[in-house]
Each structure stands twice: as structure tokens, then as C-alpha cells.
Design a protein around this nucleic acid. Structure first.
Length: 583
RNA sequence: GCGCCCGUAGCUCAACCGGAUAGAGCACUUGCCUUCUAAGCAAGAUGUUGCAGGUUCGAGUCCUGCCGGGCGCGCCA
């Protein structure tokens, strides 16, 4: 609908030749918005106000000239100039009827744009370290990322979803040694578990399940040979570092690696299963091990070296990220020859661009905001634009139960997992609540509200509207009646009740909401919209009976029901929430 | 100390590149089921948008300073 008005306005502006230059710089459609007040019509444009200065005219004069040049359309009832220079458009009833028919005709694809080839978007999200199960914070990343992906697709962008698996380096060593120590406990050798180790119960489960071939039993004395004390008396990092060194010595490189890989595999699989059950599916799981094995990291470093970007200091190789706006320079190759994660990140993001993705979106935790500058620096140094990368930061989640914060501490292994949350509140409520707030806002997740099967719960409120419509059609069949689509279209003019007008107006907004939510990576717009739509329907439902004797009125009202059901289902699908026919 | 994010009704939050009288839900009060699902509807009020300046036709939104909260500032991952 909005595009119709944009077209009319654009044509009118072109006839005003003295405005052409100024108008060119302005996207006409961006001047048009829905009105809040019915007395301002359905749409309003501030184009006259925005062009007043460059045109050297008063907004009112200009608005009058534009309106003068608008061509007639059967979709427009009337046009008014109001306030400081707004042009208000009142749409005809026929325009809304046409939209309802379009919803019915297009069904599940209503509100979707045709997919274009450009720009190809790579959406990376979650990418949690594979050292343990996902917790409720990751759940927010998963729900947000998946929904943004759905929105981008609906808006017509080709998008691929990727999970970067951080399966190398020190944390893999810590995982391996943690599992081996638990395995040894089962086989009679127990030492004090390292403070820096992974302490969760799942480590014991993994230990119990590993293929013990080549995994040897050793004495506590061998294990602790030359190992400095742990916290609180000593340094926990030095302690576990020495334990890892001993593990590699005692098991051999291959033996230790065998333990690490076997520890990694079930965790990675668990994460993938967990996310799939949550309706979050990735096109690719990109392994850092693969990145290293294929020499992409070394290749990237070589490129940087050839470009003369890198420099040596204190035995390490540095990348001057300060040249690109970072706070300080960063190390890419440590004194001991190990490549840092930053080196991998440079190679990984370079590879994303090399694979032909034009725009990279990373969804990161708010605590990672410090990395943004250096990731962009990496891209620029490799010859791309820093702005090719867009980072969306997701703030923390705090769970509330009985009005109190649920305590969580990752290091003590006391955290609520995503799986526990899903089991407690259900996938639908979890997906919905996670995206109901702006991502840059802290999220207070109230478990009691999410669980409640009552009108407190906005998920059910929306699903209920969908189920109610399905029920209306069951009722229709029970009375041996059928909905006649053609008769409905012939009788759309019978939709004259105020609740019908309100519902049609809200329905017609759906494509605009999808575009808005996609462009702003802001699923909460869709959440709020669906609540409004459900509200409009419930109001209508309570005010009027649909299955009336008069066939014309009945069919027209049912057409409105079909359209409402379609839009609710389409919207919920994008959110990853089910649209049940009965509740 | 430096950097990033946030501050809107009693509570939880919206507000599309700056637009017209800043909106929802919860909680509270009162009505509505012999009629398509009462997980519903209707009616009732709440604001110095943290504070102070600035930009302009117009600021919750942009700029500066201050106050308050969160996070980040390793040859960690």
C-alpha cells in the first residue's frame, strides 16, 4: 500500500521541475508513514517540510503544489494538507478490500519480498565455545539470530547462517584435561580438581563415554609432577597449564588429542541437537580446526606481512589495529609461536568475504564489543571495507522466578541451560520472550509469566487468536456451511463496522512491519505488531458474530478471518513460534 | 581513568532516517458467557522521556557536559 502512495508522490514531484534536484536526494518512500491519529488519514508524508528549505518555499505552499499534481487513483479517497505541512492520505475502502484479497491469494508468502541476488548476507550467531552445554544467554543469541535470519529472508535477502566452532587452542586443552581427570577419578586416581577446569556434571558423563583405547591410567604423583599449586594459594592458570603439559607428556600428543576430540564431539553434537530442537538451524558449522588445517590462517598472515602491515616487538608479531581506530595494537603470533584467536578471526572474516558474501552480520554478546574495532581493522587490512561487517550486540539475560533473580555462575558450573529453559517454559514461549525486547536492552526473563497459560502471557494471546479463527471454521462446517471466496469478494463492501476497519488497517501494515523489522534487525517490532493484530481480532470477535444468516456478510467477514489467520501464522513462523489450530 | 551500551507511567517495555496530543502489557476498579474457545472483550489514569544546555519549522530520538546502572579494556578464550 505504501508503495502505491510513494509512486503517486514520486510522479507528482517529477512534474515540479524546480524540485527535481532536491527530490532526487530524498527517498520518497521514507517520507511516508502510518499515522497515529485516524483524523490524520491512513498515511502521511512530510516531504513538503523536508523539501521546503532547498525549494525556498513555505511547507504549506509546497504541499499545495504537490497535491495539485497528484494524479487520481481509485485507491485514494482524499488528500489533505494539515499541521505544519503534512500531506495526509485517506485510502478508499476498495484499497483495503484489495489488500485483504491479496492476503488470501498469497497465503504463506504474503508479506515476503521476492528474493534478490544481492547483497549476499552471511549471518553468524551463537558460535558458543564447544566446552559445555548452551545456557540461557546463548538461547537469546539463538532466538534473535534465527529470527533476524528469517526476517532478512522475508525481506528478500539471500542469507546464510553460520556457527563458528572455536575448537582449537587452550580451551580445548582445558576441556581435554578436565575430561581425563574425571575419567581417572572413575579409575581410582583422584586429585583436587583444578579451579580453572570445567567443573560441570556433563564432563563426568563425557568421561564415562569415551573410547578408552590409548587412554592410560596414571598415578596422582605423575599427574602432579612439577605442577605448581592451585588457587587459592597459587595461580590457577599456571596450575592447569602445567597439568595440560603433563597430560600431553603422559598420554603422548596423539593420546591427548584423542581425548580432546572425543570430548569435543559430543558437546558439539549436543549443541547442534539443542538448537535444532529450538528451531534454530545453521547452513554451516565452520570449524576453526579446519581453518588452521587448510592454512587459511597462515595464508592470511602472509598476506598481511606482504602488505607490510605487521611488525615484531618483544618476540611477538603485532597487528597495528590502532591505525584502524582500535585502542591498542594486538598480537597475532605469540612469542611462543602460537597464533592468537585474533589471527584466526582475521582469516575467518577474510574467508567469509572471499566466499562471496557481500555483507557480514555478526551477533555477539555485549561483552564482546571490544572486538568490533579489531575485526573491522582485520577486514580493512585484508583489502575489504570495515563496514562490510555489521555487529549486533546482544545484552545479557537475567532469569526471574517467584519475583527473584535466579543466581547463575558459569565458573561454578551453576547455570541454567537452554535445554532446561525450553523444557520448563516450552519452545514457543522461549522463542517469543527472547525476541520481545530490543537486543541492546537487558532482558528480564520472567519464568512465571512465560509458563503461565493465562492472559498474562502474550504468546498465548496471539496463538489464541489463531486458534479461535480455526475454531470458527470448524463451527461453520458443523453447521453444514462453507465459506464462499468468490461471494466474499463480491461483498467486501459489507465490511463497514469500525472493528472491521481497524482490523483491515492493521492487516495491511504487515509488509511494512516485516521490512521495518528486517532493516533494523529488530524482531520486537513484529512481536508488538502481532500483539496488536491479535487484539484487533479479539475485539472484533467479541463485538460481532461472524456466522450470520446473510451469506454476503458472512462470507465477507470470514474472508477477514482467513486473512487474519494467514498474517498471524506468517508472523509467528518468522518468530519460530507455532500457530496452533486449537488450544 | 578510557571506550561501548542503557536510563521513558508503580513494574516490564514500545516509539519506523527527527514529525502532529510519547504508546502497550502487568498490577488496580467495574461490567460482559442460554450466541463462533472468557487463554477473550469493554470502560476507568498514570509522564518535567535521569539533569542542564545546544542544533531547527519541530527533539524521547541528533550534539556537548553532568548524574546513575551494565559491560569491556591480557602475548586469555
Amino acid at each position: 500500500m505504501k508503495t502505491v502512495i510513494a509512486q503517486l508522490l514520486g510522479d507528482a514531484l517529477e512534474t515540479l521541475t524546480n524540485l527535481a534536484d532536491a527530490a532526487d536526494k530524498l527517498s520518497v518512500i521514507s517520507t511516508i508513514e502510518r499515522t497515529r491519529e485516524p483524523s490524520h488519514g491512513h498515511f502521511a508524508s512530510n516531504v513538503a517540510m523536508r523539501l521546503a528549505k532547498p525549494a525556498g518555499k513555505r511547507p504549506h505552499e509546497l504541499a499545495a503544489a504537490i497535491v495539485e499534481n497528484l494524479s487520481a487513483s481509485d485507491q485514494i479517497e482524499k488528500v489533505e494538507i494539515a499541521g505544519p505541512g503534512f500531506i495526509n492520505f485517506y485510502l478508499s475502502a476498495a484499497a483495503f478490500h484489495r489488500e485483504i484479497e491479496a492476503i488470501i491469494d498469497q497465503g504463506a508468502i504474503y508479506g515476503r519480498h521476492e528474493t534478490s541476488d544481492q547483497p549476499r548476507i552471511l549471518l553468524e550467531f551463537v558460535s558458543a565455545n564447544p566446552t559445555g552445554p548452551l545456557h540461557v544467554g546463548h538461547g537469546r543469541h539463538a532466538a534473535f539470530g534465527a529470527t533476524v535470519g528469517n526476517l532478512l529472508e522475508a525481506a528478500g535477502f539471500p542469507v546464510e547462517r553460520e556457527y563458528y566452532v572455536n575448537d582449537t587452542g587452550r580451551q580445548m586443552d582445558i576441556l581435554g584435561v578436565s575430561v581425563w581427570l574425571r575419567w581417572l577419578e572413575e579409575h581410582g586416581t583422584t586429585i583436587a580438581f583444578p579451579q580453572a577446569g570445567y567443573r560441570g556434571e556433563y564432563i563426568r558423563d563425557i568421561a564415562a563415554g569415551i573410547d578408552a583405547d590409548g587412554v592410560i591410567e596414571v598415578s596422582a604423583d605423575d599427574l602432579l609432577d612439577g605442577v605448581p599449586g592451585d588457587e587459592p594459594r597459587g595461580d590457577k592458570e599456571a596450575h592447569i597449564e602445567a597439568l595440560i603439559a603433563n597430560a600431553k607428556r603422559l598420554l603422548g600428543r596423539d593420546g591427548f588429542d584423542h581425548v580432546c576430540q572425543q570430548s569435543l564431539q559430543p558437546i558439539r553434537q549436543d549443541i547442534e541437537d539443542d538448537l535444532a530442537e529450538f528451531g534454530v538451524v545453521f547452513d554451516r558449522w565452520y570449524s576453526e580446526q579446519e581453518l588452521l588445517k587448510s592454512n587459511r590462517v597462515d595464508d592470511a598472515l602472509t598476506v598481511l606481512e606482504k602488505r607490510g602491515v605487521l611488525y615484531k616487538k618483544d618476540g611477538a608479531t603485532w597487528f597495528p589495529t590502532t591505525d584502524f581506530g582500535d585502542e591498542k595494537d594486538r598480537v597475532v603470533v605469540r612469542e611462543n609461536g602460537a597464533r592468537t584467536y585474533f589471527a584466526s578471526d582475521i582469516a575467518y572474516h577474510y574467508d567469509k568475504r572471499e566466499r562471496g558474501f557481500d555483507h557480514l552480520i555478526n551477533i555477539l554478546g555485549a561483552d564482546h564489543h571490544g572486538y568490533v574495532a579489531r575485526l573491522k581493522a582485520g577486514l580493512e587490512a585484508m583489502g575489504y571495507e570495515g563496514d562490510d561487517l555489521e555487529v549486533e550486540l546482544v545484552q545479557f539475560v537475567v532469569l526471574y522466578r517467584d519475583g527473584k533473580k535466579v543466581p547463575m555462575s558459569t565458573r561454578a558450573g551453576e547455570f541454567v541451560t537452554l535445554r532446561q529453559l525450553r523444557e520448563e517454559v516450552g519452545n514457543d514461549a522461549a522463542r517469543f520472550f527472547y525476541v520481545s525486547r530490543s537486543n541492546d536492552q537487558h532482558l528480564d526473563f520472567d519464568l512465571d509469566v512465560a509458563k503461565s497459560q493465562s492472559n498474562d502471557n502474550p504468546v498465548y494471546y496471539i496463538q489464541y487468536a489463531h486458534a479461535r479463527i480455526a475454531s470458527v471454521f470448524r463451527q461453520l462446517a458443523e453447521r453444514s456451511l462453507a465459506w464462499n471466496d468468490a461471494n466474499a469478494r463480491a461483498n467486501m463492501a459489507r465490511l463497514v463496522e469500525p472493528q472491521e476497519g481497524a482490523l483491515m488497517t492493521t492487516l495491511s501494515r504487515y509488509p511494512e512491519v516485516i521490512e521495518l523489522a528486517a532493516n533494523n534487525r529488530a524482531p520486537q517490532h513484529l512481536v508488538h505488531y502481532l500483539r496488536e493484530l491479535a487484539n484487533d481480532f479479539h475485539t472484533y470477535y467479541n463485538a460481532h458474530v461472524f456466522i450470520v444468516d446473510d451469506a454476503g456478510t458472512r462470507d465477507a467477514r470470514l474472508a477477514l478471518c482467513v486473512a487474519t489467520k494467514t498474517v498471524i501464522a506468517n508472523g509467528l513462523t518468522i518468530l519460530g513460534v507455532s500457530a496452533p489450530d486449537s488450544m
